[in-house]
């Protein structure tokens, strides 16, 4: 299989997943609503003091997206499992990792879209001052989401097909995400304050390393894990 036909396969899988999602929209709306609700609930739990809420805001937003994004990963395989289509998809010639990359891209788009809707809500609710380092903030958001979605897509390929999948995915996924959570929250927090200590750079490097390591590992392992 040539590189070109593999990229076509990746695009086809991603396009298929996104089209299914776009046509129903039920999942997107549900996840977004749940996330917005969590932001509100965190406000009740930690507020109403505006200063302390602002300080906790970066952590709250990242936790919220991780908890609610969790639901998106199931859907990624659920639709196919219910229709019995996963076997057919696996029968097509070509590398298995293309299926993984396609699903990864679809999930990434999904979670980033949820985030784009969620962040303005967070800014309003928690009165977050958006500093001068907006491009870097976007970079951190992208890198953090990428790491989270990579592992989520990988682990959901197993958890979705086991018993007790609702419990199993977070049980497997969240311990693995601790470095992503720490790095994303710390980098976001630092950048929101204008990065006075110059610490955002090292967290960004950590995110890049995490993303590269687990993207590589997932691509290598997915073929073995997905087959019956």
């Amino acid at each position: 299989m040539s590189f070109r036909s593999e990229t076509n396969r990746v695009a086809a899988v991603a396009w298929k997943d996104l089209t299914t999602e776009r046509r129903s929209k039920a999942n997107f709306n549900a996840v977004l609503f749940l996330a917005a609700l969590m932001l509100l609930m965190f406000g009740f739990a930690l507020g109403p003091d505006a200063a302390s809420l602002r300080l906790a805001a970066a952590g709250i937003v990242w936790l919220t997206i991780m908890f609610s994004g969790n639901l998106a990963f199931h859907r990624s395989y659920q639709v196919e499992l219910e229709g019995g289509a996963l076997e057919t998809l696996l029968l097509y010639p070509g590398a298995r990792s293309s299926i993984f990359l396609g699903k990864l891209i679809a999930n990434l788009v999904f979670v980033l879209l949820v985030l784009m809707a969620l962040i303005p809500i967070a800014i309003v609710l928690y009165d977050i001052p958006v500093g001068p380092s907006i491009p870097l903030l976007f970079l951190v958001i992208f890198l953090g989401t990428f790491g989270f979605v990579t592992l989520g897509t990988f682990y959901a390929s197993m958890a979705s097909r086991s018993r007790a999948r609702e419990v199993l995915l977070p049980l497997l996924l969240f311990p693995m995400l601790i470095p992503v959570l720490l790095a994303s929250v710390e980098a976001t927090g630092a950048l929101l304050q204008g990065d006075p200590m110059g610490e955002a750079g090292r967290w960004i490097r950590l995110l890049v390393s995490f993303d590269v390591i687990f993207l590589g590992a997932s691509i290598l392992a997915f073929g073995a894990v997905i087959e019956e």
Binding site: F154, M176, L182, S209, F214, A221
Partner: peptide
């Protein structure tokens, strides 16, 4: 797969918590 991923993550977790 989960065992290997977990082991890969241990040094990263340690480093991130230390920082």
């Amino acid at each position: 797969g989960v065992g290997i991923f977990g082991a890969l993550n241990v040094p990263i977790v340690y480093m991130s918590v230390r920082w």
